[in-house]
Every structure is written in structure tokens, then in C-alpha cells.
Amino acid sequence: MWKFRDVISILDFNREDLEHLFSMTDRILERLFDVGSLLDGKIVATAFIEPSTRTRLSFETAAKRLGAEVINLEPHISSMAKGESLTDTLRMLDDYADLIVIRSPYEGSAKHAADVCEHPVINGGDGTQHHPTQAMIDLYTVRRLKGRIDGLEFGVVGDLKYGRAAASFLYGLTRFNVKRIWLISPEPLSPRPELMDRLKSLGVDIMKTENLEEAVEGVDILYVTRIQKERFPDPAEYEKVRGSYVITRKIISRAREGLKVLHPLPRVDELSHDVDDTPYQAYFIQAKFGVPVRMALISLILGAF
């Protein structure tokens, strides 16, 4: 059910698909089999036209740990810099590689890439709604730390209008029977109607609030994302709200026991370093799962198991 599939949106996958991915990730982490030569002779191409060191390196590491070769498109020195279109560049990569991972500043590029390429395409982050592999990692992290995703109460805080990690995580949650989701954001960054409609149509119990402190008290998982200054039409508005969405040790001291704080990283100042050595911190664990989840994903898509 995974073989040769494109990974464009987390919504393309049902619960069963995700559970399967998670159990393969478990097996990789438990070193139940030798993965070092699973993808011998395969070539994975990365095309990160929009830079993202973390995500690209994570994919590259995952592929190499499976024994695959990796080729990287360097957009600023490649033919694209001479004016070749993304579409033609993708056709070229499709000729060379068995799998293509793409991140581009154009929204919808991953879907377009999947239409153009015969080989499977993985979306490495695209537009304001889709970062499916991040969502897979986030869901896997919750499942590992809590033993389940069902029945939990979630808070998602930060930029819910432009933040694709947050949107993808929310979509991913709809595949499980979560108890409730709190959307916590300043008004200018509250979710688009597109996102709200889709969440509502998927039957999730959603609460919106601008009050972080209040929401923190009830949740089991707090998913934090960055609020970027440039997203505010009025910089004064940003200065006014920024402090209200910073996660500090003090704020989470109101939380219930067992709260876990997630963040897709990199962070700037929305997540205070004084949380790092508390039992709430789960973002470094989450980051560690990046490679094994992507290893499981790539293996499944290339039919290695």
C-alpha cells in the first residue's frame, strides 16, 4: 500500500497507512533487521529550491543510512540559475533518480512534480499547508511518548495562517480520534478558512483562542511554531503580541503533569531555553526521530520491505 506512492499531503494517507509507517519506524529503531544495504543501487535526488538545511540533511542521512546514493540539486549553481524551469529540471532528475524529494517556494510544486515525474515524489515542504513528512515525525513522536494519539488533547500555537508544519500536524491529527484541539494564535495569524473548513469537515473538536495560558492548562501535547515578524502587515502589531506566545518554564508550570512540548525546529525566541531541561521538553526527541521516520518512509516507497 506504500510502494511507489507520492507523498504530497498527509491527507493522502489514512490511519492504517500511518500505523504501518510507525511500526516500520519502530523496527528500524529497534535494529530488528540490517537496513544498511536495503537500498543498494538506488539513487535519491533532493531538489531543495527553497533552502532548508535540517529537512534536506535529514532526508540525505536517511537515504544514505539505507545504502542509497544521494544526488543534490544545487539550484543557485544549476541550470535553474540560468533560467531553466522547475518543470524541466524535474524531468531531468526523474531520468536520473529513483525517488525525488522536493521543496520549492512555489506552492503546489510537489503536486506538479508528482504529475511530471514517473518516479515517486516526496514533498519536503510546500506552501502554507503541506509538510507531510514533518507531520509523520510529529505524530510518531506523540505515539512514542504517550503510547497513543487517540484521546489526547492538543494545543497548537503560533503561526496557523502560514505555518505549514502546524497545518500538516493538524491534518495528521484528523486521522486519529483525538479528544480536542486548541488553536492558539494571534488574530492576524489565525487559520485560513480553507484549513478550518477541512478540519471541521473531518469532524474534529476544535477550539480557537488567543489566550495561551488558559489553553496550556488542559492539553497533553503543546505543539509550538514560530511567529515570523514579516507575516504581520503592521510591525507594531507584532511587537504587541510576540510576548504572549513565548513558551517559558513559567507558563508551562500551569500545565498538567505529563505535558510534552513539541516544536519542528529551528526555533528562534518563541520557545525559551529554560524549557530544555524540564520533563516537558520533547522537541529534541522529536528531532531525533526525523531520520528513522524518513528511513521507514523511503524504504516503504521504494519497496524495500
Binding site: K111, T128, E194
Partner: peptide, 27 residues
Amino acid sequence: QPMEHVSSRFLIVSKSPLRLECEYCGR
């Protein structure tokens, strides 16, 4: 993006009032 020559594609979300959704970016 003029260089990419990708035709627009919209799904019908609602008929009355009419509301479409871009298949690529979701807008």
C-alpha cells in the same frame, strides 16, 4: 509561474455560493 506552464485546476467545494479550491496550493 509563467515559466512553468502549469494550467490552473480547481475543485468545486460548494455550488451555492460558488466556491472553488486550487488543486495545487489549496487556496
